[in-house]
């Protein structure tokens, strides 16, 4: 096992080095306007941006830390709203097979809609671009959690519910001590998919609404033709996505159980 891990690390580094090499070779010797910046230029920009992540020189010039914080804050609100709705509704649907089947066709139709498609409707109805972006996040992180929660609750073993019935647990206690812990692995799997799609959606939503956020930052830097900033922002988006997923991965390991 330990030898395997060493080899994995070695191969990973090797693959990284090859990718950087290919990138460097592809852009080397070409004039600045004719190709994307090379790794060295991006690294220089990264070092500069990471040295001052939180500066604020007005609406069009903010540090990358501030932009990421704006995106994460927006996402936290939308994701929390979506998760509360999805888990509550999912529990109800999971406990009632009839309701589940009645609601399922609507969920199936709504699920494949890109969350950004709702944007015009949100902008028209609430007339506030920041809130519209939050609603886009809600739409993006609703369905995976809802579907997984309903499935998880519906597949709780009959035995556990029988014990809860014999103990005559009140509804709140039954929910907290039996239903949610029993379905927790499925619920967290849904939350994990949702956090990923929310993070994907926020970048696109912010490109549309403008103002603040990492998505707006990418678009703004493109308008400035600052491609090194664009590439660094892309990498930052990836790293934050990994961290969000890892956080929920830890939660899922804590809530896992073996029968």
């Amino acid at each position: 096992m330990r030898r395997d891990r060493l080899r994995v690390a070695l191969y990973s580094l090797l693959i990284g080095a090859v990718l950087l090499g290919v990138w460097q070779a592809a852009v080397a010797g070409k004039p600045a306007g004719r190709s994307i910046p090379g790794p060295a230029a991006v690294a220089a920009t990264a070092a500069h941006m990471l040295a001052h992540p939180f500066y604020d020189n007005g609406p069009n010039d903010k540090g990358i830390g501030l932009q990421l914080a704006a995106s994460l804050g927006r996402m936290a609100i939308g994701y929390t709203i979506a998760s509360v709705i999805a888990v509550s509704l999912g529990v109800v649907l999971g406990l009632s097979p009839v309701l589940y089947r009645a609601v399922n066709p609507y969920v199936q139709v709504l699920k494949p809609i890109s969350p950004l498609a709702w944007m015009p409707l949100f902008l028209y109805t609430i007339r506030d671009s920041a809130q519209a972006a939050v609603l886009v996040i809600v739409m993006s992180s609703l369905w995976p959690t809802l579907a997984n929660t309903a499935f998880g609750v519906a597949s709780i073993k009959r035995d556990y519910l029988n014990v809860a019935a014999i103990l005559q647990l009140s509804w709140p206690r039954r929910l907290v001590t039996v239903i949610l812990p029993a379905a927790a692995p499925a619920i967290v799997a849904g939350l994990r998919i949702s956090v990923g799609s929310a993070w994907v959606a926020i970048v696109a939503a912010e490109m549309l609404i403008g103002g603040t956020g990492i998505g707006y930052f990418v678009w703004n830097e493109w308008n400035n033709l600052a491609l090194t900033s664009v590439i660094f922002a892309i990498l930052a988006i990836g790293v934050i996505g990994v961290l969000l997923d890892a956080g929920l991965g830890r939660l899922s390991r804590r809530l896992a159980y073996t029968e």
Partner: peptide
Amino acid sequence: RMVVFQNFSLMPW
């Protein structure tokens, strides 16, 4: 009327 189950039916978490 408490039941002792053949498959134990303990909460695994």
